[in-house]
Design a protein around this nucleic acid. Structure first.
Length: 207
DNA sequence: TATGCGATATTCT
DNA sequence: GAATATCGCATAG
């Protein structure tokens, strides 16, 4: 399932909120193989979600752990909203929120396999290396033109940024520890499509 | 392929 | 003032 193999240009159905699992871990798994779509004036950008991480309620590695603050409030909106934040002085990261309203939790989108708008992604990223366009959470956000403006938006309502149904067939899902965190490092809360070259991380975390 | 390093800005302490 | 859910480049093996 790679760009150029017929995935681009297809009609994509919007996911309804009722289709999204409330549970954070279930949602992370559910999102693998689904699509993330951003409709821009210049055209559509879309990618197939191939890697994600769950940050469930009570997880000390999660941004909601210390309670609600102005910076993390959208994590508490309920499921199906975007939580976007800026880190390391260079990267935006996008989460799909989970659980019911008032509970802070979400799923970090770590990589997508580019489908539509590859030319636009190349411009946004400043590279034409297909494999690196949206491999890693910061690159994903840059490629899809996702920034702080999208923090808190509803991904299940009419709007330019939304979640779409699966396109094509999904391969087997692998599970591993999460990347780049310092707390709760042993929990197997990262999920990915196995052997997909658009998944980030070292080889052993892609097999 | 793997490991190491600096850059950078927002947020919370 | 410290920490950070990263990236890109450098160098070594």
């Amino acid at each position: 399932m790679h760009p150029g193999s017929g995935m681009e240009g297809r009609r994509i159905r919007r996911l309804r909120r009722a289709e999204l699992p409330l549970d954070t871990v279930e949602l992370a798994r559910y999102l693998i193989g689904k699509t993330l779509v951003h409709d821009l004036p210049k055209g559509r950008i879309s990618g197939r979600i191939v890697e994600a991480e769950a940050y469930p309620p009570g997880d000390s590695a999660g941004h909601a752990f210390r309670g609600e603050t102005p910076g993390n409030r959208s994590l508490f909106f309920g499921h199906g909203y975007a939580y976007v934040y800026f880190t390391y002085g260079s990267s935006f990261m996008m989460n799909v929120t989970s659980e019911r309203a008032g509970i802070g939790a979400g799923v970090l989108l770590r990589a997508v396999e580019p489908m539509d708008g590859i030319i636009l992604m190349e411009h946004h990223r400043g590279t034409t290396k297909l494999l690196d366009l949206a491999r890693g959470p910061g690159r994903l956000a840059a490629a899809m033109q996702i920034d702080k403006r999208f923090d808190g938006i509803d991904l299940c309502n009419k709007g330019p940024l939304w979640l779409g149904a699966a396109v094509g067939t999904r391969g087997p899902i692998g599970r591993s520890v999460r990347i780049g965190i310092t707390r709760e490092v042993d929990r197997l809360l990262r999920v990915y499509e196995r052997e997909n070259p658009f998944v980030s991380g070292p080889r052993r975390l892609r097999a």
